[in-house]
Design a binder for these strands. Structure first.
Lengths: 233, 233
DNA sequence: GAAACGGTTCGGTGCCCGCCGAAGTGTTCG
DNA sequence: CGAACACTTCGGCGGGCACCGAACCGTTTC
């Protein structure tokens, strides 16, 4: 009885279209302000403020107050997993008709973007496929990291071995992409790969958005490490 | 925009306490009638009927009409995964104070039960732990099935190798148990193990409920195959 | 200090939805 | 055939909540 109330309470946080829009926007892992989110969802700032307070109270978001701004972001990888899991079960929805300006934006997003703390888009899928081909990931097992995969992260990417001993998070985890309709690697492995690529300046963010694009050294690294050559957009 | 509406629509199906109670009851994988679910949730049959129609329309449940009965069950493993994922994120809730009759029922459930199509409770956790100890599962990787695990399913449990080539479902998958607060193996592996134990009459259902208990031959099989000796309840 | 800005609080409005009981349909059983 | 049963449909009631604009508070800028 009380258990169903808890489940319903959690679901009701996401059951409003405006709050759902906030959650989807925040899935890029960055921190947004109240006004930005209000504009994104098309509601008044007062409405957004109330919704966001509910999401914070419900534990889905955390807030960081700074001057006259209030920055909001997802409360952690578990929330991102939760939202991804839900979003993956939404039946294939009618795509909004493409606009001229919209298609340029979505072309950049389709090439590569952050999905919370890992990579998605064509780049994310290509990395996943290449790692699976080399026996580093086991796609039949929910993108599990193989022993060879652990070794590759350490020797190929230069990740400290103790970084792989996260007690809570699964090493490899499948995340369903909604532009490619393909799974790509998330979990601790996805986060470490993304972080390495950004830290090494192999990928850089476009503007203030979540889209990312390879730098020249990144294009080289993708080919050298994984044999990936991205086709033109 | 339309994407957030889809996400909100899916969440709103679970956002009602009565519908959430239905979903939790159906998580045992069996088919229930409208009247049974209405009694379980404490609402009128007419109310339950309307709720259940919504859940069917939303794709979470499927129905099978048979005579004057309407049997309802989860639409598939993906729905069970979805609900498990949500339920796992509900913050540790105040346990309902135990009643005398209730404690006997929950003792049986705590020992062993079906959780959709795999095993949960102390039996489910014990099997998972034993398989991990023998190197058949990789707990750090989301309960992924190792190559040794595949071989064990075929040679130890007598499962046909082609049964392991399910294109869609992950082989191993972690499922969080809410009585043990421990992960246990789900996914295709969990389903095959559960099915083998039931088919071999190593476990039998208690009454019409979802609780299961080992038979004498099952106690023997648990010790012989995995070295498991269950302590008294 | 004044003006601009980001955010919050507060009334008020309208809509949606969960609930029930009563009446109706179809099935089973005697 | 009639009674019991499982379920559905309908009307009506009540509560909750998403939304907005206006007023207000604190910060930044000029």
């Amino acid at each position: 009885m009380t258990r169903s109330a808890g489940l319903a309470g959690l679901a009701s946080l996401i059951a409003d279209p405006t709050r759902a829009a906030f959650c989807l926007a925040l899935l890029d892992g960055r921190a947004w302000t109240v006004t930005e989110l209000a504009a994104q969802a098309g509601v008044a700032a007062s409405t957004a403020s109330e919704h966001l307070s509910r999401l914070v109270d419900g534990g889905l978001l955390i807030e960081r107050r700074q001057g006259r701004h209030r920055y909001l972001q997802l409360a952690g990888p578990h929330v991102a997993d939760l939202l991804e899991g839900l979003a993956a079960h939404v039946d294939p929805v009618a795509e909004p008709r493409p606009t001229l300006r919209g298609s340029r934006v979505s072309a950049a997003l389709a090439l590569g973007r952050t999905c919370y703390d890992h990579l998605a888009g064509r780049i994310g899928v290509a990395i996943t496929d290449a790692m699976a081909d080399k026996g580093l990931l086991d796609l039949a097992n929910g993108c599990a990291l193989t022993p060879e995969g652990s070794a590759w992260l350490v020797e190929g990417l230069g990740i400290a071995p103790n970084r792989l001993r996260d007690t809570k998070r699964p090493l490899g985890k499948a995340c369903l992409d909604w532009t490619e309709r393909r799974t790509h690697v998330a979990g601790l492995t996805g986060a470490l790969v993304c972080r390495t690529f950004i830290d090494n300046a192999w990928l850089k963010r476009i503007g203030s958005g979540r889209a990312v694009t390879p730098t020249p050294s990144g294009t080289e690294a993708l080919r050298g490490l994984l044999g990936i050559t991205l086709s033109a957009p």
